[in-house]
């Protein structure tokens, strides 16, 4: 029983990490309708930047969150403007290849600049365990969970309450209609892609204390993030959040009760089953087969 509670707790913490990454991926997919295969590499870029800021300026990773969000927003916006935008009219194939190419280029760029070594950020205090009734979580994980909740709530308010948010929602629902209503769709796409990447910027600051950065760190997260996005119904932030929690818990439980080397098999199997039998996602928030 104790183990079960600890595993679930652990799964929720893991889930909140997936949530921040997946919400960004969902934003990009839901609005721009592009699956960003370079999403994990955005995370990697952010984590190297956090490392550099910590090394040279002595910034705590959490302080770096602000510049990271801004930097990744810029990266995302630029990628949208110069790579995705010109391909919006092209086949989906081409868009996928473009982001795959970007991902390959970024991983190898990191290898070129930083080598294959592993860099770890000093983050005093945040890796301390916090004991709650005999169960253990880390301060850094609690921060992650709170950030994930604040992020989803904040994005919700932004989408509902601000004119820009409404324009984004309108564009997501019907691009042509939004255009007719005077929304500058191209600009909305740039902003949406930027926001999706900015989520990863936040994630990179929060994850850095927990994982050392290597050129391939993004690939550790990105396939899981895709699973989460599909589980959540592709378009919905709330779906992505819940999906992340479920995958986190599944990851944790199957690693213990089935076998640690088969946990990926478990959630990939869930992923395939959801895609095939319930393409609207587990909670019916979206559509996968359109």
């Amino acid at each position: 029983m104790d183990v079960l509670v600890q595993l679930i707790l652990n799964g929720i913490m893991l889930g909140s990490m997936y949530a921040i990454i997946s919400v960004g991926l969902t934003l990009i997919f839901g609005i721009v309708r592009v699956v960003n295969f370079a999403h994990g590499e955005f995370l990697m870029v952010g984590m190297y930047a956090v490392y550099l800021l910590s090394l040279h300026l002595g910034l705590h990773p959490y302080v770096s969150a602000v510049p990271m969000v801004l930097m990744l927003f810029a990266v995302g916006a630029l990628v949208q403007r110069f790579i995705i935008q010109p391909l919006l009219g092209a086949d989906e194939h081409i868009q996928i290849f473009a982001t795959v190419g970007l991902s390959t280029a970024l991983i190898n760029l990191a290898l070129l600049v930083f080598g294959a070594d592993l860099y770890s950020v000093q983050a005093p205090g945040v890796r301390q365990p916090l004991s709650i009734g005999g169960y253990t979580v880390l301060y850094a994980q609690v921060v992650m969970l709170v950030s994930a909740l604040v992020l989803v709530a904040g994005l919700h308010l932004f989408m509902q309450r601000t004119p820009l948010g409404r324009a984004i929602r309108a564009t997501a629902q019907n691009r042509n209609a939004a255009q007719l209503m005077g929304v500058r769709v191209d600009r909305i796409y740039v902003i949406a892609f930027g926001l999706g990447a900015a989520c990863v910027g936040l994630a990179s600051a929060l994850i850095s204390p927990l994982f050392p950065v290597t050129p391939t760190i993004g690939t550790y997260f990105v396939l899981t993030a895709f699973v989460v996005v599909v589980l959540g119904g592709m378009r919905s932030m709330y779906g992505a959040f819940l999906g992340a929690m479920i995958i986190g818990i599944v990851d944790s439980l199957s690693g213990y009760y089935i076998a640690p080397d088969l946990k990926e098999v478990v959630y990939f199997a869930i992923f395939i089953l959801i895609l095939i039998f319930k393409p609207t996602g587990l909670f019916g928030f979206g559509r996968g087969t359109e």
Binding site: M17, T219, T224, A259, P260, D261, K263
Partner: peptide, 11 residues
């Protein structure tokens, strides 16, 4: 056994 790409070894 576990995958070297694991992001969590708590289990």
């Amino acid at each position: 056994p576990y995958s070297a790409k694991s992001v969590d070894l708590t289990p």
